[in-house]
C-alpha cells in the first residue's frame, strides 16, 4: 500500500519534470490552450505565494496572541497551506496538460472547495478570537 502511494507520487514528480514524456502523449494542442493552462497554474501559484506572504507577515508583525502559540500556529498553518497550494498547482498543471493532449475530460478537483472552506473556517475562528478578546479585556 505504502509502496504504491510512493510509486504514484514518484510518477507524478517525474511527470512534472519530464517535458518529453508530456510532449509524447496524444497530439500537440492549439498552443493557446497550453498557454491558458500555464496562466491558470501561475494564478494558483500566486495564490500560494499570497498565503506564504500571509504566514510570514503573521510571524513577523502580529503581537503575541493571548492564546499561547496561536500566532505561531497561524503562521505555520498559512505557510504549509501555501506550500500545498504551490505543489498542487504544478501537479494539476501537468495533469491538465496531459488531458488536453489526449483530448480527455479535464481533471476534476475538490481542491478549490477544500481550500475555500479552510480559509473561511480560519477566518471565522479569527473573528471569534477577536470578539472574545474585545469583550474580556
Amino acid at each position: 500500500m505504502a509502496k504504491r502511494i510512493i510509486g504514484a507520487v514518484w510518477e507524478s514528480i517525474k511527470r512534472w519534470f519530464d517535458p518529453r514524456e508530456l510532449r509524447s502523449v496524444g497530439s500537440t494542442p492549439d498552443y493557446r490552450f497550453s498557454l491558458a493552462n500555464e496562466r491558470t497554474f501561475l494564478a494558483w501559484l500566486r495564490t500560494g505565494l499570497a498565503l506564504v506572504a500571509g504566514g510570514l507577515a503573521a510571524a513577523q508583525f502580529l503581537p503575541p496572541l493571548p492564546l499561547a502559540h496561536l500566532r505561531e500556529v497561524l503562521a505555520v498553518g498559512l505557510l504549509l497551506l501555501g506550500a500545498t497550494v504551490s505543489i498542487r498547482a504544478v501537479d494539476h498543471w501537468a495533469r491538465t496538460e496531459r488531458a488536453i493532449r489526449l483530448g480527455e475530460e479535464l481533471p476534476a478537483s475538490r481542491f478549490p472547495a477544500v481550500l475555500a472552506l479552510i480559509v473561511a473556517v480560519g477566518a471565522l475562528l479569527l473573528v471569534g478570537a477577536v470578539l472574545i478578546r474585545g469583550t474580556t479585556p
Binding site: 512534472w16 519534470f17 500555464e38 497554474f41 501559484l45 500560494g48 505565494l49 506564504v52 501555501g82 506550500a83 504551490s86 505543489i87 498547482a89 504544478v90 498543471w93 501537468a94
Partner: peptide, 10 residues
C-alpha cells in the same frame, strides 16, 4: 520553469 517555480515557492 513550471515545476522549479512551484518547488521554489514551496
Amino acid at each position: 520553469s513550471m515545476p522549479l517555480t512551484a518547488l521554489g515557492a514551496a
